[in-house]
Amino acid sequence: NQASVVANQLIPIQTALTLVMMRSEVVTPVGIPAEDIPRLVSMQVNRAVPLGTTLMPDMVKGYA
């Protein structure tokens, strides 16, 4: 099973992502693949992302 990127904390809207905000976890449905974590650093979320939420491509500006 492929690991996805999951929020390690509440990430407020417009926040630039850092490594400490994300973790990898095998979840359903599958979100952004964990191997993309380095690419996500400094990208902004376009909505508030609660703790434990799987990051989906449409939540990160410039990802999809």
Results as ranks from 00 to 15, higher is better:
residue 2 Q to V: 13
residue 5 V to F: 04
residue 27 V to D: 02
residue 47 R to C: 10
residue 64 A to Q: 13
residue 38 P to L: 13
residue 13 I to F: 14
residue 24 S to G: 11
residue 26 V to F: 09
residue 57 P to Q: 07
residue 18 T to P: 01
residue 5 V to K: 00
residue 16 A to V: 13
residue 19 L to K: 06
residue 41 V to R: 05
residue 61 K to A: 13
residue 25 E to P: 00
residue 43 M to V: 04
residue 5 V to Y: 03
residue 14 Q to S: 14
residue 21 M to H: 08
residue 19 L to V: 08
residue 2 Q to H: 14
residue 47 R to T: 13
residue 44 Q to G: 03
residue 1 N to S: 15
residue 33 P to T: 08
residue 31 G to F: 03
residue 34 A to T: 07
residue 56 M to S: 06
residue 40 L to S: 00
residue 51 L to T: 10
residue 60 V to Q: 00
residue 12 P to E: 09
residue 40 L to A: 00
residue 1 N to Y: 15
residue 56 M to V: 09
residue 5 V to H: 01
residue 26 V to C: 09
residue 2 Q to Y: 12
residue 49 V to Y: 03
residue 8 N to S: 10
residue 4 S to C: 05
residue 28 T to Q: 10
residue 33 P to V: 08
residue 9 Q to I: 11
residue 35 E to H: 12
residue 62 G to M: 10
residue 11 I to G: 01
residue 15 T to K: 07
residue 46 N to G: 08
residue 39 R to T: 08
residue 43 M to D: 01
residue 16 A to Y: 13
residue 3 A to R: 07
residue 44 Q to V: 14
residue 36 D to W: 08
residue 53 T to A: 13
residue 63 Y to N: 02
residue 39 R to P: 01
residue 35 E to P: 06
residue 13 I to A: 15
residue 19 L to Q: 07
residue 17 L to I: 09
residue 17 L to H: 00
residue 47 R to N: 07
residue 8 N to H: 06
residue 2 Q to S: 13
residue 31 G to C: 04
residue 44 Q to S: 14
residue 15 T to A: 10
residue 41 V to I: 13
residue 4 S to D: 01
residue 61 K to T: 14
residue 50 P to S: 13
residue 2 Q to I: 09
residue 62 G to C: 13
residue 8 N to Q: 10
residue 15 T to H: 07
residue 49 V to Q: 03
residue 50 P to Q: 12
residue 43 M to R: 08
residue 29 P to F: 04
residue 39 R to N: 10
residue 53 T to G: 11
residue 31 G to T: 02
residue 12 P to N: 08
residue 64 A to Y: 06
residue 58 D to I: 09
residue 40 L to V: 04
residue 38 P to F: 12
residue 39 R to K: 15
residue 9 Q to G: 04
residue 27 V to G: 02
residue 7 A to K: 02
residue 45 V to H: 02
residue 43 M to A: 07
residue 21 M to T: 00
residue 17 L to D: 03
residue 47 R to A: 09
residue 50 P to N: 10
residue 16 A to I: 10
residue 34 A to P: 05
residue 62 G to F: 09
residue 32 I to N: 00
residue 20 V to G: 11
residue 40 L to T: 01
residue 4 S to G: 04
residue 61 K to E: 09
residue 6 V to T: 05
